[in-house]
């Protein structure tokens, strides 16, 4: 009997352990539990300081997801501080249902603004309706959702298709006789992949001297990209452009080129293109090892701040959908200043 009780306790303890660990992985900080205690703690402090702080609840994806996300999170954290007049709570998850739960929690906590980078485009209608009924302003950042426009006040997004177009136009301007492209794609179906692939696919279909040597998804993974390019080299394929849809994959591709003794960069055999403007990637550009890097702007905080100021001033934001300005960097013209300013 005693033993059975002990066993039961053991099992209970283990399951608890499992639950706790599972939670910490998805990075949601147990969206409901932790955030509520966070908000309580901060509200207590704020009543002491001043009652004028604007209360915002920020729902984001896991900052570990990528360098982009880390920069995005750091940018938001730097903007929404007490010094800038905000009382911010953060919730992180890569799962839509956990994000929705966090949103409900924020609505209960009666935040003034709900900032959202949704994990998935679908499923947000009812919770955003609740927010609207409670008089909470909703601002989407980074990612758009499939919901009626009336449910949110503004959305600040990147135009992935334009990022792709800018990159492909740059490539076309290089004036090569023929373009033989190894196209390394991100996770299939993601907005970034669709936008960046679409522009290249259109161009290849339209021009006779453009050709895709290989088109494979490496799922944003440098190791996979390395294997894919390695396989093309082993097969003796002829190519002169690597079009990788993010910096990590471009790095993997370059590792394969280096091992095979294929020169790359400005004025060399193979043109290397990446996206996201990681600082280390821009440094590769500066060293002329890569040729092009397209920006995917993670710095939405200042745009959001502006919109909140507008709404607080009593007027509606001028545009519902704000598309951020994004650049493409050329290895021949990039400066150290660019690296410092735009590197993430």
């Amino acid at each position: 009997m005693k033993r059975k009780v002990l066993e039961m306790m053991m099992v209970a303890a283990m399951t608890m352990g499992l639950v706790a660990c599972g939670g910490s992985d998805s990075g949601d900080a147990a969206a409901t539990g932790d955030t509520s205690s966070d908000t309580e703690a901060t509200t207590e402090e704020t009543t002491e300081a001043s009652g004028e702080l604007i209360k915002v609840g920020i729902i984001n994806n896991d900052p570990n997801e990528s360098g982009y996300r880390t920069a995005n999170d750091a940018d938001l954290k730097a903007m929404f501080t007490k010094e800038n007049g905000y009382d911010a709570s953060f919730a992180y998850s890569l799962k839509n249902d956990e994000q929705i739960q966090a949103a409900q929690q924020f609505i209960q906590d009666d935040v003034d603004y709900l900032l959202l980078s949704a994990a998935d485009t679908a499923g947000w209608d009812s919770v955003l309706q609740d927010a609207k009924d409670a008089g909470i302003h909703v601002i989407l950042f980074d990612r758009t959702i499939d919901a009626d426009e009336s449910l949110y006040d503004a959305s600040i997004v990147s135009d992935m298709a334009k990022e792709g177009e800018t990159a492909v136009n740059w490539l076309a301007d290089q004036g090569l006789d023929s373009y033989k492209v190894i196209h390394i794609q991100g996770v299939m179906g993601s907005a970034a992949q669709q936008g960046r692939s679409g522009a290249l696919d259109d161009k290849v279909a339209a021009e006779s001297n453009w050709e895709i040597v290989a088109q494979q998804t490496a799922e944003w993974n440098a190791e996979k990209a390395q294997q894919i390019v390695q396989s093309q080299i082993d097969a003796g394929k002829d190519f002169n452009v690597i079009y990788a849809e993010n910096d990590d994959m471009a790095k993997g591709a370059v590792a394969a080129l280096d091992a095979a003794g294929i020169s790359h960069g400005v004025g060399k055999d193979v043109i290397v293109m990446g996206f996201d403007c990681n600082k280390w990637a821009l440094e590769e550009l500066l060293a002329q090892n890569w040729n092009y890097d397209g920006q995917c702007n993670p710095f939405q905080a200042s745009y959001i701040d502006e919109i909140i100021k507008t709404i607080e001033g009593g007027s509606a934001p001028a545009e519902k959908v704000v598309i951020m300005e994004e650049k493409g960097f050329d290895a021949e013209t990039i400066t150290q200043e660019d690296v410092d300013t735009y590197g993430i």
Partner: peptide
């Protein structure tokens, strides 16, 4: 292999 790490995909 890459002299760096990416926690989510390595």
């Amino acid at each position: 292999r890459l002299s760096t790490i990416n926690y989510s995909v390595i």
